[in-house]
Amino acid sequence: MSEEEVEAAGWDAIEEQMRRLYGPQEPKHYAALLPYMLGGKDPLNGISAYKAELPYPHWHFVTFGFSELYEKESDDPEYSGYGFELTFRLVRSADEQEPPAWAMSLLQNMARYVFSSGNFFASGHHLDANGPICLGADTRLTALAFTDDPEVPAIDTPNGRVEFLQMVGITADELEAMMSWNTNSFLQSAQEALPGYITDLSRDSLLQKPGIAEAVQEGIERDGSNTGFFYVDQLEWEPGKSRLLNKAPAALIMGAKQAGTVAKLLRGRLPKNKELTLNSQNLAVILQLGEETGYEEGEKFVRISLSEAAVQELSTTLRPIEGEYKLFTAKNLTVRVRKTYIKDQDGNVVETIG
C-alpha cells in the first residue's frame, strides 16, 4: 500500500462500504473547491450521490468529512473524528441525471453546525430547521431526524469507528411527536409508509395515517418521552418578589414557539418520574416531580419541583399563545409566554408565533 493510500485510509473505508451496496457504480461526487482548513466555506471534503432503485428510485448521499479521512488527529482511539458520516435519501425522478444542489447545501449546513458548535449527531437525534429544509420549496418538511442508515452499517477504520447516520426530512408535527415519544420508535412505526426513510418534499404528515397516529399515542402513554433536554431560545427566570401584603410568585418565562412542546414534554416526562431540562445560552431550568411545588435557584440554573396536580394543570393549560399562565395548584409559581418572532437570514421577521 502506498503512502498516499495510507493517508486516505478513512476515505477509502467509506468508499469500500458504499461499494458493498452499489458495486461498481460510479457515484456523482462533489468536492469542496477550497479546503475548510484553508478558509473554505464548506466543512465537508466531499459528498457522493449514488443512484438507488429500491424501494423506488432515489438519490443516496454520503458525506466525507465528519470522520478522519486521512491521518489520525484526535486523541480518541475508539472513534474517527466525530464518529459518524451522514447519509441522505431523496426521491429521484425518472429523468433526473444530477442530484439537486440544495441537498448538498443542506448536508454542508449540517457540517457547519457541527464544526462551529462542537455538537454532534447520533441516532435518535432531531433538529428543527425553522423553515423548509429546501429553501423556497413548497413543502411541509421543516425538521430533520437522524437514525442509523438501514443499509450501511458502522465500520471500523484505521482511524476508529464510523457510524452512518441517515438524515430524514420530517414535518413539524412529526418532530413534536418524536420529542413527545422517541425518534427511532416513531420511525420504526412508520416504516411501511416511509420505506427506506426516503425524503420526499411533496409528502404529507405521516400522522394523517390513523395507524401511525394511534401507534404514536400508545407509545407516548406507555413509554413517556425520551427527550430529557430541550433547547429553548427564549428562556428566563424571574425570582419571586416581596410586596406590601404578599409575595409575587416567581415566573418562568419562555417563547410561544416552544411553549406547546414544553407542555407535551412535561406530560411525557414528569409523571414517569423523569426530569426535563430546558436549556438556553444563559440558563438551565430542571423540572422534576415533587410532593409539592417549589424551586431552588442557582447562579445559572433553577430546579423546579412540580406536584402531580401542578404537572397536570400546566401541561393541559400551557399554550403557544402570549399571556400569563397562573397555577391555581401552586400560588408561588407562574409561567409567562412571550411572542416568538421568526426571522430570515437577513434578520427580517417572516413569522410571528403567539
Rank of each mutant, 00 (worst) to 15 (best):
R203N: 08
P271A: 04
K343T: 14
K247A: 09
E151A: 09
M110H: 12
I212T: 07
Q217P: 02
R267A: 15
Q108E: 15
E98R: 14
K41R: 11
K331A: 12
Q217L: 13
P195R: 07
E292T: 15
N119D: 14
W102P: 05
R92D: 03
T316Q: 10
T261W: 00
Y295M: 10
N159D: 10
N159W: 02
R319M: 07
E176A: 15
G23Y: 02
Y79K: 13
E163R: 14
K331V: 11
F164W: 01
N226I: 00
G46E: 12
D75W: 00
A9C: 15
A193I: 00
Y113D: 13
V285H: 03
T316A: 11
H29N: 07
A129T: 00
I212L: 09
L276G: 03
A259V: 04
A172N: 09
A31S: 12
N109V: 01
E98A: 13
W59K: 04
V168S: 04
K241T: 12
M110D: 08
K41E: 13
L90A: 07
M104N: 11
Y295T: 04
S225F: 04
N226P: 00
I220H: 09
D95P: 00
D346W: 11
L21Y: 11
K51F: 09
Y113T: 10
L244E: 12
K51I: 13
A122K: 12
A137L: 08
E297V: 15
V152Y: 01
L38S: 09
Q108T: 11
Q108D: 11
G118C: 07
A193H: 09
I212H: 05
D346S: 12
V232D: 01
E96R: 02
E291W: 03
V262N: 03
W237L: 11
E4S: 14
I198P: 10
G169R: 01
M104E: 13
L289H: 07
N279D: 00
S74F: 03
V285T: 03
G255I: 05
I220C: 10
H126S: 15
E96N: 04
E163T: 08
R267I: 00
I304K: 02
V349Q: 04
H60W: 05
P77G: 07
